[in-house]
């Protein structure tokens, strides 16, 4: 009895549920789509604006011109800031990756019992507001005689290290510890194992970490805000200072170049190890 009355009802209920589900799916897809538009719009708009022939940072642009790219190339302050950021980023990346590797390798193999502690301590600079790091280094310079350039560089290294540690730890997870032990039993010292076995095995991870650290250093504002000086102004600070007074599409041209460079580098990481591994905070 119960089964037969239920039988008549099931299809309608199922149809209702299916409709609900479809509405839910469509609503979800729209929400996700809108979020992506929100995330990408400002960047796309910047790229369009960079081809704007007029002075106003207006959108949609009225025509097409490379005027602002020429202006960028001709402006000494922006190009030298760009170059300075490139150098600073490259150096910071090398230091941060080296320290990140040593830390991650120690955490993974040699301080196994305190591993969690080491990992969370390595993440410290992510938890501290970067503005505080920048200011503290500036204040420190009034007490300790340290070259400003070195301080700026080390400040960048500090903010990059958490990411290099996290990324390299992820790469190390894929290395079979047995391979290292095998090398030990065959007569290799720990240093030898690190150099001949571990580093070649995680080379893609190290390269990704270098690139990622470079990107972070290149985009940093809060350290450079306090430690930039004459002849050592990074690109973001140069733009920030400029934007406080005026806003012409030359900024759009510069940032478009930067975005293009960063997307290219990001794709290299994606090919090497997958960006997901690097971003795991």
């Amino acid at each position: 009895m119960a089964a037969s009355t239920g039988f008549g009802r099931v299809p309608r209920a199922a149809r209702g549920a299916a409709l609900h589900r479809r509405i839910g799916t469509i609503a979800g897809a729209m929400a996700v789509g809108l979020t992506y538009i929100f995330l990408l719009a400002p960047i796309i708009v910047v790229i369009f604006t960079s081809f704007n022939p007029t002075t106003a940072s207006a959108f949609p642009p009225r025509g097409f011109s490379l005027r602002w790219y020429r202006e960028f190339a001709a402006s000494g302050s922006f190009t030298s800031a760009f170059q300075f950021s490139l150098w600073l980023g490259a150096l910071a990346a090398v230091f941060a990756t080296t320290i990140g590797f040593l830390t991650a390798y120690a955490a993974r193999r040699f301080v196994v019992r305190r591993r969690e502690l080491v990992q969370s301590l390595a993440m410290l600079p992510v938890m501290i507001p970067h503005i505080l790091i920048g200011i503290s280094l500036l204040v420190m310079l009034t007490v300790v005689e340290l070259p400003e350039l070195l301080t700026l560089l080390l400040g960048h290294v500090i903010v990059c290290v958490p990411f290099t540690v996290a990324g390299i730890l992820a790469s190390l997870e894929a290395v079979d510890p047995g391979v290292e032990l095998a090398a030990r039993t065959l007569g290799a010292s720990r240093l030898r194992v690190m150099w001949e076995i571990v580093i070649p095995l995680i080379a893609p991870g190290l390269l990704s970490s270098l690139i990622f650290a470079f990107i972070i250093s290149f985009g940093d504002v809060y350290i450079a805000l306090f430690l930039s000086g004459p002849g050592m102004t990074t690109l973001p600070i140069e733009i920030f200072t400029y934007l406080q007074w005026e806003s012409t599409p030359v900024v759009a041209a510069i940032t478009s170049v930067q975005v293009l460079m960063i997307i290219a580098l990001g794709l290299v990481i994606e090919r090497l190890v997958g960006l997901r591994k690097i971003i795991r905070i």
């Binding site: 079979d176 047995g178 391979v179 032990l181 095998a182 090398a183 076995i197 095995l201």
Partner: peptide, 8 residues
């Protein structure tokens, strides 16, 4: 080693 641990 159990899994041979050859250097890949």
């Amino acid at each position: 080693f159990q899994n041979y641990a050859l250097f890949p």
